[in-house]
Amino acid sequence: QWKVGDKCSAIWSEDGCIYPATIASIDFKRETCVVVYTGYGNREEQNLSDLLSPICE
């Protein structure tokens, strides 16, 4: 189960590419979260089910 502060990978809606991110907040009722893309600072809402394991850098 994901928690705030977890590192993950998420698909950015603008280009469909996968980027490393950190979970900033979680809404368990809606099963969504807000991620912050590492190195970019962009925030975006994602479905918890769409999150991927962190990418090894």
Rank of each mutant, 00 (worst) to 15 (best):
W2H: 13
T32L: 06
A10D: 06
A10L: 03
K3I: 13
Q1D: 13
D6F: 06
C8N: 00
G41T: 04
I55R: 09
Y40V: 11
E14M: 14
E45F: 05
K29P: 08
E44D: 08
L48M: 05
S13H: 08
E44I: 02
D6M: 07
V36H: 02
F28S: 10
L51V: 02
S9L: 15
V34P: 02
S53C: 08
C33R: 00
K7H: 11
T38C: 13
Y40A: 07
C17T: 05
D6R: 00
E31A: 13
E31M: 15
S13P: 04
R43N: 03
T38N: 08
S49T: 07
Y40R: 15
A10H: 05
S9V: 09
P20V: 10
W2Q: 11
A24E: 15
F28G: 08
I26Y: 00
L51S: 02
I11P: 02
N47D: 06
F28R: 12
W12Y: 10
D50N: 08
V36E: 13
G41M: 09
A10E: 06
C8P: 00
N47A: 10
S49R: 13
Y40G: 07
G5Y: 08
E31G: 15
I26D: 08
W12T: 08
S13W: 09
Q1A: 10
R30S: 11
T22S: 06
N42G: 08
K29R: 12
G16W: 08
I18D: 04
C56I: 15
L48R: 02
D50E: 06
T38R: 03
C56L: 15
E31P: 00
K7G: 10
G39Y: 14
S13V: 08
D27N: 05
C56R: 09
I18C: 15
E57Q: 11
S53A: 14
S49I: 12
R30E: 11
K29L: 13
C8D: 01
P20M: 12
A24F: 14
L48D: 00
E14H: 14
Y37I: 06
A21S: 02
G39N: 10
K7D: 11
S13D: 05
L48W: 04
D27P: 00
Y40M: 15
A21C: 15
L51P: 03
F28P: 12
Q46L: 09
E57T: 15
D15E: 02
R43W: 13
C33H: 00
G16Q: 05
A21Y: 05
D27Q: 01
D50R: 01
G39I: 11
R43E: 11
E44V: 03
A10S: 02
E57I: 13
D15T: 10
S9M: 15
E44M: 06
K7L: 12
E57N: 11
R43P: 06
I18V: 12
G41E: 07
Y19E: 04
V35E: 01
T22H: 05
E45H: 07
C8V: 15
Q46K: 15
Q1C: 15
L48K: 01
F28Y: 14
L51R: 01
F28A: 11
S53E: 14
W12I: 08
V4S: 02
Y37P: 01
W2Y: 09
P54R: 10
F28C: 06
C17M: 15
V35A: 02
G16M: 06
K3T: 11
D6N: 00
C17P: 03
V36Y: 03
E31C: 09
S49P: 04
P20R: 04
A24H: 13
D15Q: 08
D27V: 08
R30M: 10
D50I: 09
N42D: 11
E57R: 05
P20W: 12
W12Q: 04
S25C: 07
E14K: 15
T22N: 02
Y40I: 13
C33A: 15
C33T: 04
S13E: 07
Q1F: 11
T22Q: 08
Q46P: 04
D27S: 01
S53P: 15
E45K: 05
F28K: 10
V35Y: 02
Q1M: 13
S13F: 06
A24Y: 14
N42Q: 11
V35R: 00
D15I: 04
C56D: 15
E44F: 06
N47P: 09
C33N: 00
G39V: 10
T32C: 05
C56V: 15
Y19T: 02
I18L: 12
G16E: 05
E14W: 14
E57D: 12
W2V: 11
I55T: 09
T22D: 04
G41D: 06
I18Q: 03
T22M: 07
R43M: 14
L52N: 02
C17V: 08
T38D: 15
G39Q: 09
V34N: 03
P54H: 08
G39A: 09
E57K: 02
Y19V: 04
E45R: 07
R43Q: 14
S13I: 09
W12R: 09
G5L: 02
I26P: 04
